[in-house]
Design a protein around this nucleic acid. Structure first.
Lengths: 160, 160
DNA sequence: AGTGAAACGACCGTAGA
DNA sequence: TCTACGGTCGTTTCACT
């Protein structure tokens, strides 16, 4: 879970080309040895390790396992746009507590909050919508966009 | 970039509790040693290594570096819903080529495609929308939901 | 911030159950 | 698919720049 947004108080970090190159290496394979990465970017193993540590501790980068829901039999995914009459932050917090919801963002526009859900099947999505989302206090309407195909998913924002 | 969706032909993988535990360990820290993970889940180092290899090769899991756009000074993010008169797959493919767009999904509902963008500022988003998205052949309308706050982001679908 | 070197620990291949 | 084990390579610490 992250906590970013326009209200983020931390100042932006300016990466040099070497750090960007390190991140690119680890984006391809998060377990590549520091020595290998060092060879690729022209730095010693120790220097790479120090930079990775700094990047990780500052929250700029993290190395994590990510899983593919489709491969695990979660065949139904959807984005849900929600309008509320109440405090949008309260709604977002309530949505974030639901384990089937992996992504919650407060937005400007015709939805107050958008949430992505991962479900085993359509029935589970329907159940979730009606018994756990639409019943949240203040919710006025929801609009569901069922995923037909995930075309692109890129985890490495800011290093393109 | 992934390639999932309802059209996915691969059959679901059923994970046992041990593999789920391994994934949980590596979700917290993708660089933890196999020996450490083994201690946590009650398996030898070699067994953990084999399971991680299988999980990775089958595409169920991958260990990667992820970065935080806000920390890097990309202060403007948005979800864009798009309607097209043409082939939605062609539109999705064109959108996927744009580096500022990190997420593209074909949907059922009042949008044909939804895309997430990461920009340095509002001007860049405006420029992108008008000169590279709305000009794509067939695009009929776009609706932009600027992010005010990212509330939840979870990378480990299917192991909740 | 970076390098280099030595001790330590992790990783890999193979054998065996 | 697991454990056991030895060789190799990566990581860690530290002294130095």
């Amino acid at each position: 879970m992250t906590n970013n947004g326009r209200s983020s108080q931390s100042r932006p970090v300016q990466l040099d080309e070497v750090s960007k190159a390190i991140i690119e290496q680890l984006q391809a394979d998060g377990r590549r040895s520091y020595a290998d990465v060092g060879k690729a970017v022209g730095l010693s193993e120790a220097a790479v390790r120090q930079r990775v540590q700094r990047l990780t501790e500052s929250g700029v980068m993290q190395i994590v396992a990510v899983t593919d829901p489709m491969q695990l039999g979660f065949t139904t995914q959807a984005m849900i746009g929600i309008r509320t009459a109440g405090d949008t932050r309260v709604l977002a917090a309530r949505l974030a507590e639901i384990p089937e919801i992996d992504y919650v963002v407060l937005t400007a526009g015709s939805f107050d909050v958008m949430a992505e859900v991962v479900c085993e099947n359509d029935d589970e999505l329907l159940e979730l919508l009606n018994t756990r989302i639409r019943v949240i206090e203040g919710v006025q309407s929801t609009e569901t966009f069922v995923y037909l195909k995930l075309q692109k998913q890129f985890y490495n924002w800011g290093t393109r």
